[in-house]
């Protein structure tokens, strides 16, 4: 009986209020669960998601001016597939000159960084001259022959430098002999 009365009461109130129907508890539960389970099922921790978000902001802000705080990055279920949904409130698209400038600036920064890394690994090399294996800062790998460094030309690693230096000294020695 109570149920009937509360139902009737709600209907009467609803009639007078004429408000938009609210999302029902069932749908809220389903949606919240889907999001939570998505996070549970993947190994992406909140920290990793945050890192990904930051890196995306960094990348995208070269091209567009956006509201960084309002950027949303979520995993969502799309049928059987999982989708990474990225919602970016764009304030203004940058023009070409600005984009070029940003890219140039970034390049300069990364160059400066590699310079620093080379210097750092120099000091390491000094400490341990016999050890051929060294830490390549750009790739964070320990390598004997350092293939990684040879792939990218802008990074010069210790072994390359050494080889060059050796060749140079050999050349000068040869020249001296001649």
């Amino acid at each position: 009986m109570k149920e009937i009365f509360t139902g009737l009461y709600n209907k009467v109130i609803g009639f007078f209020k004429q408000t938009e129907p609210e999302a029902n508890a069932k749908d809220i539960a389903c949606n919240r669960l889907r999001v939570v389970l998505m996070q549970d099922r993947t190994n992406l921790t909140p920290e990793l998601m945050e890192r990904m978000r930051k890196e995306l902001v960094e990348l995208l802000s070269k091209y567009v001016e956006m509201d960084k705080e309002a950027l949303e990055l979520n995993l969502e279920q799309d049928g059987d597939q999982m989708a990474l949904m990225l919602s970016i409130p764009v304030l203004r698209a940058k023009d070409e000159a600005e984009i070029e400038q940003a890219i140039a600036q970034e390049k300069a920064e990364s160059d400066a960084e590699t310079q620093e890394n080379v210097e750092e690994s120099d000091s390491v090399q000094d400490d341990d001259k016999n050890n051929n294996a060294h830490k390549c800062e750009d790739y964070d790998v320990e390598c004997a022959e350092c293939n990684e460094c040879e792939i990218s030309d802008d990074v010069e690693c210790e072994i390359k430098k050494k080889k060059k230096a050796n060749k140079n000294t050999e050349k000068t020695e040869k020249e001296d002999q001649e």
């Binding site: 508890a25 069932k26 539960a29 389903c30 669960l33 889907r34």
Partner: peptide, 16 residues
Amino acid sequence: LIKSNDMMSVDDVVEI
């Protein structure tokens, strides 16, 4: 509760 949309239905749980 399922009828009044206050609780997840059997189909919802099975699907999730």
